[in-house]
Every structure is written in C-alpha cells, then in structure tokens.
Amino acid sequence: MIESSITTNRMDTSNIFEKELDLRCQFNILTRPNGSVIYCEGETTVIAGIYGPVNCKMSKMLSDKAYIEMNYRPKAGVPSVQDRFYEDIIKNTCETALAGALYPRASVIITVQEMHDDGQLISCAINAACLACLDSGIDMRFIFASISCFLTKDGNLHLETPNSKNDIQAVFVFVFDSVKGDVIVSHTEGVYSIDNYKQGLKISREGSKQVFKFMEQEMARRMKQENTS
C-alpha cells in the first residue's frame, strides 16, 4: 500500500515540472507608495505597497536597523488573529531579506491587501511583498520566492490549488532565498508524514525556480519599459 503510493508520487513529481505556474503581476499600480504591485498566483490575488525608508516613530525606532511595519489587510473587515499570524510570517521574511542595517532609525512600511483567496494566500502575499520591494528599489540582501504545495487525500502533491478543496489534506508553504536556495520560512497546515514533507520540499524548491525566473523577467521588463518610455 505504502509502496504503491510512493511510486505514484514519483510519477507525479515529473508531471508537476512540466506544468507552468500561472503567475501574473503588474507594477506601479498605486501612485502614493514608493513601490506597488498587484500579483496573481492562479486565482489568488493580492496588492502590495511599500513606503520607505521613512522617518520612524521614537517608540518604534531601532538603533541598528530599520523597523519593518507590516500591515496585512483581509478582503473585508478588520484583521483577525489568523491575519495577524500571516502578517508575522510576511514580516519575518521581509526582515531577513531587506538590508535593514543600511537604514538604521528608519522604518519601512509594507502593506498587503488581500483581493481574493483561492488557497495560496500566504505564498502569494509573500511574493507580492518581494515584488513590491524590488519595485521600490530598496536595498535587499537577496530575492525571496514563496510557493504553496498541496497534499491531496490521494497522496499526490500539487503546486497549484486543486480543483476540489475538500481533497486537500495538508498545505506546505515554503520561502526560498535566491542566492543559496535555502529555506527561509516553512509553514504547514494539516496532517502529513515526514516523507510527504520531504517530497513537498523537493518539488517546492524546483517550483520556486519558476517563481524566481518570473520575478526576474518581470523586473527586466519593468526596467526596459522605464528606460524607453
């Protein structure tokens, strides 16, 4: 029983890479922030904006690095406990990636607005935050890319939201850095085995290369646009 499930998994991994992730984005959609982006991962959509580095409140000021203020806004209503949790994940990711030491006593304000959630919300929000940072031209140590991996009840792994959400057994969210390909964030929901996790990590790492490629392509296009316009 176990053996057969492993073999099916292996077959699936080869299929996953042939499939291109459905990623789309548009830069500079808001006028006020220093960098902004609308980003879609499949059906999941978020808008992210970044201000900064700006002057910081005395109470929040850090003498050795920039203070990062993360605002995550749900689709409707005020942020709940779950949203604060997402906020924390994105904030931690940005704190490791941004070269905060270059802007001590300043603050960087990142706002992420959920537009639509189709299951990949966390990874979508993290990627949007990264693209917004790139758009604003703030100094970063590396680019980061996040990816959601779904484990369905039949034991298969998918990098895209499965059609039937009732089949989802577990969700893994990973964030990778662009330099070494290390895992920065690992977030999991649901029930899974260690094998599932390891395999999920493996295909997520492969999938993240697509996200990095997408980000670099989009930035290249943006730079080109700006220079010829």
């Binding site: 990636a97 790139l134 100094d139 970063m140 140590r141 590396f142 680019i143 850095d177 662009s178 330099v179 670099e216 930035m219 290249a220 730079m223």
Partner: peptide
C-alpha cells in the same frame, strides 16, 4: 552568479 557590465543584476 556574476553579471557583466551593462547587464541587469538582481539582489543577491
């Protein structure tokens, strides 16, 4: 990874 002069480079 090392970009040449006049090429696009990315953080990291």
């Amino acid at each position: 990874m090392s970009g040449g002069i006049g090429e696009l480079v990315y953080p990291g």
